[in-house]
Amino acid sequence: MTLAQVAQKANVAIATASKVFNNDKSVRSYLRERVLEAAAELNYQPSMMARALRKKQTNIVTLGIMQLENPYFGALAQAIIKALDDKGYVGIACIGHEHIKDINVAACACGSIVSQALSSNLDDIAQAGPIVTINNRDPRPELSSDVHFDFDSAYQTIITDLKKQGVSNIMFGCELEQWDVNRQQKFGFVHQAFALAPNDQPVVCDTPEETIAYLKSNPQIDAVFCVNDPFAADLVTLMHANESELSQRVKVIGCDGNRKLWGNWTIALNVNQIAQMAVELLDQQVHQGDNHEHRKVYHPVAIKA
Rank of each mutant, 00 (worst) to 15 (best):
R54Q: 11
C94Y: 03
N104D: 13
A52N: 15
I100T: 06
Q67C: 02
Q78D: 14
C108P: 01
Q127R: 11
T58D: 08
A106Y: 10
I125E: 04
I92R: 03
K55D: 01
M66E: 13
V132I: 09
Y89P: 02
H97N: 09
H97K: 09
V167Q: 07
C94F: 04
A79W: 07
N135C: 11
Y72A: 07
L76I: 07
K55A: 14
L68I: 12
A154Q: 04
A52V: 05
Q78H: 14
L162N: 08
I159F: 07
D161L: 04
D138I: 12
R137H: 12
F151E: 00
C108H: 15
D138G: 00
D161N: 12
Y72M: 11
C94H: 01
A83P: 02
S153V: 10
V105W: 08
L68G: 02
G91K: 05
D86N: 15
G91A: 05
F73K: 08
D123T: 11
I80T: 09
G91M: 03
I100F: 05
D102V: 12
N104Q: 15
A128Y: 08
S112R: 01
A109I: 03
R137A: 13
T160P: 07
M66Y: 09
P141N: 10
R137I: 14
P71N: 10
T58A: 08
I95K: 13
I95S: 14
T62D: 02
V90A: 09
S119E: 12
M171S: 08
D150E: 15
T133D: 06
Y155R: 02
I159W: 03
R54A: 11
A154E: 01
G166T: 08
L118A: 00
R51V: 07
H97G: 02
N135V: 07
A126K: 12
D161V: 01
L118C: 00
A83T: 10
F151R: 01
A83D: 10
D124S: 11
A126R: 13
